[in-house]
Deep mutational scan, measured.
Amino acid sequence: DIIVVALYDYEAIHHEDLSFQKGDQMVVLEESGEWWKARSLATRKEGYIPSNYVARVDS
């Protein structure tokens, strides 16, 4: 799995977006363009995230 960590807070604009806080970790489910589908490890919610707001966690 690709794990990313939030670099900034993000408040969902559309209902399919995923809100998150700086430091939150998410599993990337699908990478396509600038918006990635991800699942929050904390809340288990899924939605689209702006890929420029996150960084990959080296395992």
Rank of each mutant, 00 (worst) to 15 (best):
N52H: 13
S32I: 13
S40Y: 04
M26D: 00
Y48Q: 06
I13R: 13
H15Y: 12
E16Q: 12
R39M: 11
G47S: 00
V28R: 01
Y8I: 07
A55R: 13
E11A: 11
A55C: 12
A55D: 08
A55M: 14
G23P: 00
D58P: 11
K45C: 12
E16W: 15
G33A: 06
D24E: 15
K45A: 10
R56W: 09
A6C: 07
Q21H: 13
E11L: 11
N52W: 15
E30I: 10
S40I: 13
S59P: 13
P50E: 03
W35H: 07
Y10R: 06
W36R: 03
S19N: 06
H15W: 13
G47H: 00
Q21G: 07
Y8M: 11
I13H: 11
L18F: 05
L29C: 06
Y48K: 09
E46Y: 06
S59F: 12
V54W: 02
M26N: 00
E46H: 06
Y53M: 13
A12E: 03
Y8W: 11
F20D: 00
S40G: 05
D1G: 14
K45F: 07
W35Q: 07
A38P: 00
V27F: 08
Y8K: 10
N52T: 11
G47A: 01
D1N: 13
P50Y: 07
Q25F: 15
T43R: 03
L7I: 09
D24F: 02
L7D: 01
S40N: 13
E34Y: 15
R39Q: 09
A6S: 03
E16I: 08
D58Y: 09
V5Q: 07
K22Y: 05
T43D: 09
A55T: 13
V57K: 07
R39K: 09
L29N: 03
R56Y: 14
V28D: 00
G47P: 00
E46M: 09
A12T: 04
V57I: 14
H14S: 11
P50V: 02
V28W: 02
E46W: 06
S32T: 12
E30H: 10
N52S: 15
D1V: 14
P50D: 07
K37D: 01
A6K: 01
V5L: 06
G33C: 09
H14V: 05
A12G: 11
Y53D: 03
L7Y: 03
R56H: 10
D9T: 09
E46Q: 08
G33Y: 05
I49G: 00
S51K: 14
V27H: 07
F20T: 01
V27K: 09
M26F: 15
K37F: 15
A12I: 03
K22S: 07
S40R: 06
D17V: 09
V4T: 02
R44Y: 14
Q21A: 11
I49P: 01
Y48G: 03
I13K: 13
G33N: 06
G23M: 03
R56D: 04
W36C: 09
A6W: 01
I3T: 06
G33R: 04
V57Y: 10
K22N: 04
V27M: 11
S59G: 14
E30C: 15
A42R: 15
V5P: 00
T43E: 06
V5T: 07
H15F: 12
H15A: 15
Q21F: 11
S59R: 11
H15P: 15
E30L: 10
W36H: 05
R44H: 15
R56E: 06
A42S: 12
Y8P: 00
L18K: 00
D1P: 14
V28A: 03
E31Q: 15
T43K: 04
Y10T: 01
K37H: 09
S19P: 06
D17H: 15
I2R: 11
R44L: 15
G23E: 03
K37R: 14
M26C: 01
I2W: 10
A42C: 10
D58M: 10
V27Q: 10
H14L: 07
I13C: 14
I13A: 10
Q25W: 15
V28M: 04
L29W: 07
L29S: 05
W36P: 04
L18A: 01
E34S: 12
S51P: 11
S59E: 13
I2F: 15
G47W: 02
V54E: 01
A55W: 08
N52L: 09
S40Q: 10
S32N: 13
D17N: 10
L18P: 01
D1A: 13
P50I: 03
S40H: 15
S51C: 12
D9A: 08
V4N: 00
S51N: 08
P50H: 07
F20C: 02
V54Q: 01
D24K: 01
E11S: 10
V57Q: 08
K22E: 07
G23H: 04
G33M: 04
G33T: 06
Y48P: 00
E46N: 04
E30W: 11
A38K: 01
H15R: 13
E30N: 11
Q25I: 15
A6F: 01
I2L: 12
W35M: 10
D17Q: 15
D9N: 10
T43N: 09
L41N: 05
